[in-house]
Structures are given as structure tokens and as C-alpha cells.
Nucleic acid binder design. Structure first.
Lengths: 352, 352
DNA sequence: AACAAAAATGCAAACGTTTTCATTTGAGGA
DNA sequence: TCCTCAAATGAAAACGTTTGCATTTTTGTT
């Protein structure tokens, strides 16, 4: 009984609406794009017909003419990550406010996968894309610029960045926390950073930290850096080993996740933070403020970055070539909380 | 004078590729869709031409015929949330493996916004959509089914669910943790749950917890439930107040975030966990295992849910009406860690 | 070598909109 | 009322693919 219309499904198109409203398809199209150009009574009839039929416009068909698809891409190393989740949420929310939708994909710090993703997004005709960080292969960048698809770097800031960027100065972040620790008088410190390969954030932070350390007169041989993956459990494990072998009073962590792990490691070893060991992180993730003790860290305004990025991309679409190139540096805030203190003059407790 | 080009700058289309390869556009199209139907030498030429020109196919134009767009939607209450982030990542990753992309949006527990989002996704011709939970307005569900767009519920399981579902039994989760606490001998317990309005997960868990409590003979008046938002800081604050006023030996938390806050509150008050207070959560988020003490909780296999959901949706596309309806219940694992112990017989320390 | 069957390719008509250009309608001035 | 001009609408040609059908090429058989 359910006769199959020649159109694939029962979904009514613009022409059915037009028929029912007694106008031409062109007018219906205009009504949805620029309501003001159709007369009041006509509007009413179209509106009525559309809602009777449950019409939903097909933006894909529309984008074949429009140049714009209303979809904007976001490429992140990983979604499952407290740092980025806040930014992603803000980005997405702002996009919805601009009547755009977000296409997101994660590459897991693999530049080849990133290239594949960019291609895939381009196949879907994205109107713009935000890429996390500065480390990118040349190919995807070329594909984007050839097609005039606006692309921006987010999360990082650099005055000479290739793409327009919105982000924080990670070098400065590294300096900030290191200065704090050294100002407190610590000299026996350990640096724990994520693998810097294909991760320019970690690299810049570490550079900043090293630079700060050197400016305090520490020799290269006094700066001990450990690699540590982005995982609380592994960080905890790592720090536990380090603390057993090495005599140190402060842990400078490349990000808050590592710092969380470090804090738990200390607690497990019965070391008091900050009495026996001071810990700093970078990021100020959800939760860092409320741990016991609160984590001293540097706040990266993740939501702000996401919101600004969404605005910027939409703006670049609307302005076209007239959009000014930009490089926005978002401010870092040092959050001095309970996990740092001057070094304990007495010997730290041993834990054997 | 500011003429915007209507088509993408210089972007070569299938016909340019065809011309260069000396074949018809139809053959090029076939090459990209079903390489096996074009002969070896022809393949080579097309491949060459495409790469010379930097051709990127326009899947939007393709989807006008295809019925499928290769895009699948995921609608979550919020992205910025440890629980969902893992699932989202897994969902997205699996989709990429199926050569699909993910369109994601968050509604912030607002059903009207969810409706708007479904409409917006439908305008983009999604091939299917996964919705978190069972609480949905009727309108979006109707829109989806009218258009034969597969929709599934994820995260929750119920034997009589309206949509096919993949998820855990939250009632059972609530029971599990409550039983554990009561088995240990606790009777002075407090329940801390997220607001159950528009959040069927929280509702089911709380029901499960209450049911378990009653089966241990606790009267309704002995079951104290506090509302607590999904935020470490607020939970910490809340628990601090509660612990000051109420005499209790165990905190049953509706999710791990609340449990984290509770743990920090205890630490701040100088109460020992689990010696003075036992704490359980639900979820087993990243990090819960590595805190000090490790959090006793129930593991929800978030990644598994994400992966299964992606598979299911793709399958429903490929099978069409032939796909069997399903209701998958993913297993819960009770994780017994350090945050729970039998109640301390001595009076808990006071903290004034 | 010739022929039938199968495989590969080409042609042209969709797909559901937007948009240009032409036409009709309506408003305002005489 | 008639006429002019602007505003509203309609007709039809795109947009970049896919696909049914027709045609050509290849392959396998005798």
C-alpha cells in the first residue's frame, strides 16, 4: 500500500513544497535562503506547506552552487584528552551559533593520518579547518591552499607561524613554571615531558623550561629530562621509579596529566607534596584546581581558543580574501596553588 | 566588484581528470568507486591524471545519487567530559576505518537543542545517528524514521528500549556499588547523584542503588540522597559540607567525577580513605585507577560502546531493512580498589 | 579465424538545489 | 485610470557526480 515514490524515500523535496504552496521551486528556495525577498502571504503559504510535509532542506544539493557547505573541520591529535575536550566543546558550540556544523577527526600524532584526514574532509567540502599545532606535512597544507580553504593553527602561538594561529606561547609556559620552581630555591629538579617527536607543544615547553633553567645558571648536565607518555598511570609509574633512584625536590611536568600522575606517585610513596616534593604542571585541566593539594600550573584558556578559532574561520569564509591574516596570542595565567613550596631543608623521608 | 568565484578556485573535477586520462568521466567515476571494473592500463592512466591534477573527489555531488553521504552523526550531552570523550574517540576512529566521517554535536542536556541538532544533521544528509541515552523528544525521532535514517541509543541498555541500543545497565551499576558498600558492613551511607532530570543514566543508577539499599533492609528514611552536579569542584564542596554535618562512613557516588571530588574533600578534611570513609564511583574514568587510593568503581566499557555503535550504524546502512533490530548489553566490571574498606569501628576523627 | 559471450567504456539523463534572466505583478504618481 | 518602475516570481540552466543503457573492446571457444 505504501507506494514507493520515484524519489528514493518519502522525503519531500523543494518541488513538492512548491507544488503544495502553489509557487515555483525557485521561490521556495529563496524563502529558505533570504526570506525577506518573498512577500508576506507567500511566505506564509510556503511555511505552511513545508511544515505540513515535514520538509528538511538538503544542504548538500545546495552547496553544489554555493561554494560553502556550512561544515567546518577540526583536526586534533586525540579527542580523548582533557586538554582538548574543553576546546572542542567550545569550538563546536560556537560553530552551532554560527549555523555551521563541525566535522572532527583525530590523527593520534601521526602526520600521515592527518594528511588522509585532510583529504577526507576536503572530499566533504569543508569550508575551513583548524589544525592543532604547527607540525604538519606539506601535502595537506598545499591541498588546502590550492582550494582556498581557510586553515588555521590552534593551540600554539608563534610570531612567525606559517598559518594564521590562535594559541598560547608554550615556550613561555615552560619558562613560567620553571622560573617558579627555581625562584622557590629548588635546584634538584627533574623535567618530565611528553615525547617531543611530532608534538611541538611539548617541544616548545621543554625548550622554555631549559632556557629558564640555564638562565638560573644550571648546566646542561644538571637538567635531567625524562620522556613520559600522556597517561596518568604511566606517569605515576615513571615518577615512582625516578623518585626511588634520584634525589630531587621538584618535578616539572610538561602537562597536568603527567603532574597528576606525579602527585599520586608521591602520595603512594608516602612523600608529602609540597613538603618533600614540589610539583608543577601545564594546562590547568578540569580537576587540577581541586586535587589535594591543588596543582600549581599554568592555565591555558582552552575554551577561549576554541571559541576564537570558530569565529575566525567563519569570519574568513565571510570576508573571503579580504580577511586579514592574524596571529593571536592568548594569555597564560600562572596558577599558584598548593603543590609547590620552597625545598625542605631537612632530608626528605626515605621510603624503603 | 568583489566577485566571489562560485566554484572552487581551479579545483579540477572528474571531467578534467577524464580529459587528461583520455577516458570518459563515467570511467573515472567508476575507477574511484569500484576500481576493479576498470582495466589495469586504464587505472594507471586515471591514477596518474588524478594525481597530476591534484584531484579530490566531491563526495557531496556523489551523494546526490547515492542515498549515502558517508557521514554519521553522534549526539552527546557534552563532549567535554571524561566519560564520553573515550567513547567519542573510539566511535570516530572506527568510523574512519569504515571510510566514514563523524559529525558530532553536543546539546548540553537540552532536548530542544537536541531536536535542532538532529534537524541540522539531517540537512547534512547523515547516514545514521547515535544518540546518548533514552530521553529524547518525539519530533527528532519521527524525523529520523520518516527518512529511514538509522538511529540508535547508546550508553544505556534497557530490554524494552524504543530504539536499538548498545549500552550498559545503569540500574545494575547502581546495585553493584551499593551492594559492595553494604556487604562491607556500612550502614551510614550517603548517595550523591547527578541531577536525574533529563539524565536517565543518573536516574537508573540511583534507582539501582536505592533498590539494593532496600534489599538490605534500609528504610527510605535511611537513604539520604544528595544532588550533585557533574563537576569535581562542586562535588568536593558538596561533600565537604555533608561530611561536616552528617555522620557517615561511605559515599556512594553516581559517577567517578563526583567520587574524585569526594576523595579530595576527604583528603582536605584530613579524613583517611578508606579508613574513615569509603568511596565508590561509577564509570572507571581515565585516572580513577591511579589515584591514591585507587577508586573502587564499576567499569563502563566506553570504548567498546563507541566501537560497537560505529559498527552497528555502518551495518544498518549496508544491510538496509534487512538489518535485525538489536539491543546489546555491554558487560559491567566491578573494580575493587583501595577506596573502600569495612567501616572503622572507632569513631571517625572529627575535623574542627 | 570467426563468433558469441563477457567485460570495459561511453553517452546522457538524473540527483535537489541555486541562480540568472525574463516575465509578471503591484505600487505610486500623473 | 494609465503608465512607469521596482519588487516578486517563474523557467530553465547550471553544479559535479553516478548510473542505466548502448556500444565497443576483449576474451574464450570452436
Amino acid at each position: 500500500m505504501n507506494e514507493r515514490p520515484r524519489s528514493r524515500k518519502g522525503a519531500p523535496g523543494i518541488v513538492e513544497v512548491a507544488k503544495r504552496a502553489g509557487v515555483s521551486p525557485a521561490t521556495v528556495s529563496r524563502y529558505f535562503n533570504t526570506p525577506s525577498v518573498v512577500r508576506g502571504p507567500t511566505q506564509k503559504r510556503i511555511e505552511q506547506a513545508a511544515s505540513d510535509l515535514g520538509y528538511i532542506r538538503d544542504r548538500m544539493a545546495g552547496s553544489m552552487h554555493n561554494r560553502f557547505s556550512g561544515t567546518i573541520g577540526l583536526i586534533v591529535p586525540t579527542i580523548d584528552n582533557a586538554i582538548f575536550a574543553e576546546m572542542i566543546e567550545a569550538f563546536s558550540t560556537r560553530l552551532v551559533q554560527h549555523d555551521r556544523t563541525m566535522l572532527i577527526a583525530a590523527h593520534g600524532y601521526d602526520l600521515d593520518r592527518e594528511t588522509a584526514i585532510v583529504r577526507s574532509l576536503l572530499e566533504r567540502r569543508i569550508d575551513g579547518v583548524a589544525l592543532v599545532g604547527f607540525d604538519h606535512a606539506q601535502v595537506p597544507l598545499t591541498m588546502l591552499s590550492q582550494r582556498d580553504v581557510p586553515a588555521i593553527s590552534i593551540w600554539n602561538y608563534a610570531p612567525n607561524a606559517l598559518l594564521p594561529c590562535i594559541g598560547a606561547d608554550n615556550f613561555e609556559a615552560g619558562q613560567l613554571v620553571t622560573n617558579h620552581i627555581l625562584d622557590l630555591g629548588h635546584r634538584k629538579t627533574v623535567f618530565l615531558f611528553a615525547n617531543t617527536k611530532g608534538n611541538d607543544r611539548a617541544r616548545d615547553r621543554l625548550e622554555g623550561a631549559k632556557t629558564a633553567a640555564k638562565s638560573y645558571g644550571l648546566g646542561s648536565d644538571e637538567i635531567t629530562v625524562f620522556d613520559c607518555s600522556y597517561d596518568i598511570g604511566e606517569a605515576k609509574q615513571r615518577v615512582t621509579e625516578i623518585l626511588k633512584q634520584k634525589d630531587c625536590t621538584a618535578l616539572i611536568c610538561g602537562n597536568d596529566v603527567i603532574a597528576h600522575g606525579a602527585l599520586f606517585a608521591c602520595q603512594a610513596l608516602g612523600l608529602s607534596v609540597p613538603h618533600d616534593v614540589s610539583i608543577v604542571g601545564i594546562g590547568d585541566f578540569r580537576g587540577s584546581a581541586h586535587m589535594e593539594p591543588g596543582l600549581t600550573t599554568v592555565r591555558l584558556p582552552a575554551r577561549k581558543i576554541g571559541t576564537m578559532a570558530a569565529d575566525a574561520l567563519v569570519d574568513m569564509n565571510e570576508m573571503g580574501a579580504a580577511a586579514e591574516p592574524f596571529r593571536h596570542k592568548v594569555p597564560l595565567t600562572f596558577m599558584d596553588r598548593g603543590s609547590t613550596a620552597p625545598p625542605n631543608t631537612a632530608e626528605p623521608k626515605r621510603h624503603d
